[in-house]
């Protein structure tokens, strides 16, 4: 599997990363070398192996349906670049 310059541009766009032409030229071979490294895994025979989703614990932990969080607007908005009247204020987005 090999990424073209256009693939890199598309992925960068989806991730909202702005890249200059020279960065794109540089990034394609770098990403390809990472992909090539990971691709070695496909050499392993996995036909009869169940997919493993996580190695941490065997079951998903659940919580009770209780309200015990939130009501901390100041904390929530503390890192917002801009906040007004209790809202996040962002550049206008109307489609």
């Amino acid at each position: 599997m090999s990424l073209s310059r256009e693939d890199v541009q598309k992925v960068a766009g989806l991730a909202r990363l702005r890249m200059t032409d020279s960065q794109l030229d540089e990034m394609a071979p770098k990403l390809n070398s990472i992909l090539g490294f990971v691709e070695q895994l496909s050499e392993v025979e996995t036909d009869n192996v169940e997919p493993l989703s996580n190695v941490a614990r065997s079951t998903l932990s659940l919580r009770k349906d209780e309200v015990n969080d939130g009501e901390c607007r100041d904390k929530v908005l503390a890192n917002a670049p801009e906040a007004e009247e209790g809202f996040y204020a962002v550049p206008k987005v109307v489609e």
């Binding site: 209780e66 309200v67 939130g70 009501e71 901390c72 607007r73 929530v76 209790g86």
Partner: peptide
């Protein structure tokens, strides 16, 4: 998360750091 889902609260009050 454990934040309330009650409708009509003041903006950004029913919000946890997870949300």
């Amino acid at each position: 998360s454990g934040a309330s889902i009650e409708f009509g609260a003041a903006p950004n009050t029913h919000v946890s750091l997870v949300d």
